[in-house]
Computed example of a mutant assay.
Amino acid sequence: MGVALVGSLAVLGAAAVALGSSEGTPSGSAPSMQARSVPSEAAEQVAENPAPVPPAGTPPQSGAPQSTPSGTVTPTGTFTAAAANGPAVGKGTIRRYKVEVEEGIGIEPQTAATEVQAILADKRGWTTDRRNGFQLVADGTFDFTVRIASPETVDRICASGGLDTKGEVNCDVGRQVMVNSKRWQTGSPQFSGPIEEYRALIINHEVGHRIGHGHEACPGPGKPAPAMMQQIYGLNGCTPNAWPYTADGSYISGPSIP
């Protein structure tokens, strides 16, 4: 989403900030598996023997438990990196990414990494343009990190790029796709369907910003909403949709929003 605020609420404005894009509204000032912990703002290394993930394109198991709350959820500001590698998928530029989860929010990093990997490998995703590809990595060089964090932590990190996520939405800032755990675990009242589909919208929207896509509007009543539409703010007659492409490879587009 613009300065990418994806699937979480879909981005508030489409302000393109030099640091990234997001669903968040630009703020007045811009301050900012075996798994191991990494500091809040850095995560360059993980375990030496990463666990494999399912083959590219393997869909996440519907209904698989994604959160494992045990008592009070207490975000720590510290992230655990998923020690998992996956195969490169897609053509053209292959972007290497890591998945990290904030400790204390009840989400298991390995499970989250498997789900993100399946979304980015799906044939309805961005690889269909044959210009972009992705690879889940646990260590070495990488292009960006998908981070699932508490609303408070997302707000803090997104603010570093001048984005106001209001405790509700996601963003793409710097080298990070920030996913609001509230949206990851509960979806959006505007989006009917399985939670797995809404998670796909979050990832597709924010990663779409990262590879150069801006926000789009509803193309007409009854038509599927583009993945780059801020669907959390209302569908305007469109039907909910999580994917940039149809199963037969057609791009689901709408009017560009400046």
Results as ranks from 00 to 15, higher is better:
residue 174 G to P: 01
residue 115 E to Q: 04
residue 202 I to A: 14
residue 240 P to I: 00
residue 231 Q to P: 04
residue 78 T to G: 00
residue 252 I to Y: 00
residue 197 E to M: 05
residue 106 G to T: 01
residue 154 V to Q: 11
residue 212 G to I: 08
residue 47 A to Y: 11
residue 11 V to E: 11
residue 191 F to Q: 01
residue 90 G to L: 00
residue 203 I to F: 01
residue 190 Q to S: 04
residue 219 P to Q: 04
residue 26 P to D: 13
residue 157 I to H: 12
residue 6 V to K: 15
residue 191 F to E: 01
residue 65 P to L: 12
residue 233 Y to L: 13
residue 171 C to W: 02
residue 132 N to S: 13
residue 185 Q to H: 00
residue 36 R to G: 15
residue 34 Q to M: 08
residue 4 A to Q: 14
residue 79 F to N: 15
residue 251 Y to R: 13
residue 154 V to E: 11
residue 117 Q to N: 15
residue 194 P to E: 07
residue 245 Y to E: 03
residue 92 G to L: 03
residue 114 T to M: 11
residue 70 S to V: 15
residue 150 S to P: 07
residue 39 P to W: 02
residue 11 V to L: 12
residue 252 I to E: 00
residue 92 G to C: 04
residue 258 P to W: 00
residue 125 G to Y: 08
residue 124 R to Q: 13
residue 178 M to D: 07
residue 64 A to E: 12
residue 207 V to Y: 09
residue 3 V to Y: 02
residue 210 R to G: 03
residue 45 Q to T: 12
residue 83 A to R: 05
residue 107 I to H: 07
residue 57 G to C: 07
residue 222 G to P: 03
residue 23 E to K: 09
residue 258 P to H: 01
residue 188 S to D: 07
residue 111 T to L: 06
residue 35 A to W: 14
residue 104 G to E: 10
residue 177 V to W: 10
residue 115 E to H: 01
residue 73 V to H: 00
residue 79 F to S: 13
residue 95 R to V: 00
residue 30 A to I: 10
residue 126 W to Y: 12
residue 168 E to L: 15
residue 93 T to N: 11
residue 68 T to F: 15
residue 95 R to L: 07
residue 45 Q to V: 11
residue 166 K to A: 10
residue 200 A to C: 11
residue 218 C to R: 10
residue 222 G to H: 05
residue 162 G to R: 06
residue 38 V to P: 10
residue 148 I to F: 10
residue 204 N to V: 12
residue 82 A to N: 01
residue 180 N to P: 04
residue 155 D to W: 08
residue 47 A to I: 14
residue 226 P to F: 08
residue 141 T to G: 15
residue 63 G to M: 02
residue 185 Q to W: 00
residue 183 R to F: 07
residue 177 V to D: 15
residue 165 T to A: 09
residue 56 A to H: 01
